[in-house]
């Protein structure tokens, strides 16, 4: 059962991500990214990270990608992507794909050699996550709050009209 879920949702995640980079209509690419993220959420659930999985659905699929959807909709018909083969000179595209394949082969070689662990899973409920977050990771937590505040300032400063 676990294996079936793992391989099925991995396949959906990989196919969805492939669609994101291959489809030429931005809205469709975005919707397939939502599909891929939902599949990744299943992997989180298999790894016993329940709260992260729910946060992934609410924060990513719910908020971030809907924000993307709004911006894509704002651009309307102008947001069409050039077809894949006309986007860059063929040699440039081939060089990019070659670089990615080299990276992937190096990564997989390292991953296969990784030592075997018993995947017992860490506790993923809200209580243990909160205890870890507010005891061992208090300074990074405060820093992320400053980061969020600064990004709000930056977004307001960027969105404001020049002459205002």
């Amino acid at each position: 059962m676990e294996a079936v879920l793992f391989y099925a949702s991995s396949a959906v995640a990989i196919l969805g991500s492939l669609m994101v980079i291959l489809l030429s209509k931005p809205t469709r690419a975005l919707l397939s990214l939502i599909l891929a993220m939902t599949a990744i959420t299943v992997l989180y659930l298999l790894l016993n990270a329940h709260f992260v999985a729910i946060a992934q659905i609410i924060v990513y699929a719910g908020a971030v990608l809907v924000l993307f959807l709004f911006v894509i909709m704002l651009q309307g018909t102008a947001a069409v992507e050039i077809p894949l083969l006309k986007r860059f000179p063929p040699l440039t595209s081939a060089a990019g794909i070659l670089a990615v394949l080299i990276f992937l082969s190096l990564f997989i070689r390292a991953a296969v050699r990784s030592p075997e662990f018993k995947m017992i899973g860490a506790p993923g409920d809200v209580k243990s996550l909160g205890l870890t977050l507010f005891s061992g990771y208090l300074l990074p937590f405060q820093l992320t709050s400053i980061l969020l505040l600064l990004s709000v300032f930056a977004a307001v400063a960027l969105a404001k009209k020049e002459d205002a």
């Binding site: 492939l18 690419a29 992997l43 860059f88 990019g96 990564f107 075997e116």
Partner: peptide, 30 residues
């Protein structure tokens, strides 16, 4: 039980797909 390396390989493939998209897309949003 799924071994750790399977999860690592899936995440490596996803990362490579993202990297390919970064290199091959021309629309800033994508």
């Amino acid at each position: 039980m799924i071994p750790l390396s399977h999860y690592l390989i899936v995440s490596g493939i996803l990362f490579s797909i993202g990297l390919a998209g970064l290199l091959l897309r021309r629309n800033l949003l994508l």
